[in-house]
Design a protein around this nucleic acid. Structure first.
Lengths: 168, 168
DNA sequence: ACTAACATGTAAAGCGTTACATGATTTG
DNA sequence: CAAATCATGTAACGCTTTACATGTTAGT
């Protein structure tokens, strides 16, 4: 469902687009929120078209297919945004490593936390150098920035605690 | 892979356990990091046994099967923790709703943000009233607490901004 | 001519959720 | 004896990733 919603949202925000365009948007502006490659997007657009949520215009240059959101697509999008209680489930390999930290020696734990920190720093850097983008997605951007900074702060505190230890 | 690692980690931390036990641990202590129900855990344990990562002891009361981590299982776990660069990918319906906020009217956006905030509050409450648990998982717990508080703070700031608006 | 970017797809395998199904033991 | 909890599993479906496969256009 969320893939559909994300595609409808992009089509609603930026107007008609091809699967290729949408895959790029996913990679560039939506990547801190949801991920999908073109292999998932192309078939989904076909299904959405057969469900009447989008319409494919005639092919353009290089076999390019432009999709437009339909009124029914807009309705579906609005309804999901208005009614759907968002699942707050997290699946984070970084958090899993954090969970298992006590299984490691002090030195190994430090290395692991430094790697987790590096991951948050990469995310922070990507979000920081990606402003504007038509301003769309700004709320999610500020949420992502805050979460990344929180992760870095957690890593710093955890590193300080681990380094203060004298036991193994 | 992560499901395997989580199971190996639990078996390594708490000793021999049944699939049922592990499912409970997932639900109670690991749920802010990774999720899996018994329908995923039982078959995975069978596969892990055939891969030599765990060993099933004879059945106990009520058909209960106790699994123990093997030396090879410990090696796999250690290697993953030491070498694996954790994927920092996020898939969050809440963040997706945040991303699409500009598509909504001021009033609808406020409702959506309040729902997102409620989700973070539930997560915060669950983590707060779940201390100890053998102290294992404490690092992930503090990370989860910090992330939940960050989410609530973002929601409050966003609500303040939205409410300050006079336009639709 | 070559390379990079454009542009679309299919297939297989793996991961995850939901629904279905069964039976034993404990507690009230 | 009824209900809750213990305990295990299968099957179908849907979502996601990886690998394969093809052809066009623009710039150097």
């Amino acid at each position: 469902m969320s893939l559909r919603i994300a595609l409808l949202g992009l089509l609603s925000a930026v107007g008609p687009a091809s699967g290729y365009d949408l895959a790029k948007k996913f990679d560039r502006s939506l990547n801190h929120v949801w991920q999908a490659g073109h292999t998932q997007i192309y078939p989904e657009l076909v299904k959405m078209a057969s469900d009447g949520l989008v319409e494919a215009e005639a092919e353009g240059a290089r076999g390019r297919k432009l999709y437009t959101i339909t009124p029914e697509g807009r309705r579906e999008l609005r309804e999901w945004l208005a009614e759907h209680d968002p699942a707050m489930t997290i699946r984070s390999e970084g958090a899993l490593q954090a969970f298992l930290l006590p299984l490691l020696s002090r030195d190994q734990a430090i290395k692991v936390v430094e790697r987790i920190k590096a991951g948050y720093q990469v995310r922070l850097a990507r979000l920081e150098c990606k402003p504007a983008e038509g301003e769309f997605g700004g709320y999610a951007r500020s949420l992502g920035l805050a979460q990344a900074r929180t992760g870095i702060q957690w890593a710093d505190e955890t590193l300080a605690e681990l380094k203060a230890r004298t036991d193994l």
